[in-house]
């Protein structure tokens, strides 16, 4: 089968998006990693040991603990969106695996519910952003566009199964091919092309946007630091240089 220009375009797009996503994230993580914290600023009460602090960060990442006590409605919306997205992502792993891992196969039906939860959460987040005066005040156009992009990914995803039956075997062959550096044909279906373009856009935007909250939470000193300043002296390299001077 001849490879269409569209397939080539999407192949190049996904290679570029993956490179920007991974390269950009590595660059930002490296930057966060290298930037020192001169002072101990854990928000207390805080764990007094490093494993305790790691657990605290884990609870934030998995359970959104602080948000739970901050705003219950927002927590519900955020949890719906993020957990839904996670399930949908797991469902999509099958496009990259042959044979498909058992857990991924088992998760397939939940992926659908995940997608629905994600869309529901996103729509509520969007409504909230427009309705609550405080949130509207701090909303930049990009905050709305980011929500619309994610909603677009969700709707185009469901559009493939609801409206146009996309040849998923061919889609899988396309992505398996990319993994082996081969360009294979992609079905030319508008919902699919929209879906993939939006996902690529999200990957490209990731390292340059507020989506950096994903790696950033692991580098938040108020959360990741252990509360032990009296027990162990903490000194940043640039602060140590001040001591040499005086």
């Amino acid at each position: 089968m001849a490879i269409s220009g569209v397939s080539t375009f999407y192949a190049v797009l996904f290679y570029a998006a993956t490179a920007i996503f991974l390269g950009g994230l590595a660059w930002k993580i490296g930057q966060y990693w290298r930037t020192p914290s001169p002072l101990k600023i854990a928000v207390t009460p805080a764990p007094v040991s490093a494993p305790g602090a790691a657990l605290r960060v884990a609870r934030e990442v998995v359970l959104f603990e602080s948000l739970f006590f901050s705003s219950r409605w927002l927590w519900i919306m955020a949890a719906l969106f993020h957990a839904g997205l996670a399930l949908a992502l797991v469902r999509h792993l099958r496009y990259f695996q042959d044979p498909v891992w058992e857990p991924v196969a088992l998760a397939q039906p939940f992926g659908i519910y995940g997608g629905l939860a994600m869309l529901g959460g996103l729509l509520m987040l969007l409504a909230r952003r427009l309705v609550i005066d405080r949130v509207r005040f701090v909303t930049a156009p990009s905050d709305l566009l980011m929500l619309l992009l994610l909603i677009g990914i969700g709707i185009s995803g469901f559009g493939m199964s609801a409206m146009a039956r996309v040849d998923v075997v061919m889609v899988k062959a396309f992505f398996r091919g990319l993994l082996m550096f081969q360009i294979r044909p992609l079905p030319i279906d508008p919902p699919l092309l929209l879906h993939l373009a939006a996902v690529a856009a999200l990957m490209i935007l990731f390292p340059f946007s507020k989506l950096l909250h994903l790696p950033g939470i692991f580098f938040s000193p108020t959360r990741h630091q252990a509360d032990n300043p009296r027990e162990a002296r903490h000194l940043a390299p640039w602060a140590a240089k001040l001591e040499e001077k005086s």
Partner: peptide, 23 residues
Amino acid sequence: LGKYRSLRVYLDICVKCGACADK
């Protein structure tokens, strides 16, 4: 930005959720 991880990270990662707004 090069001296304080807090500043570096916090300027990047806010998602403008507004959880802090009424606190």
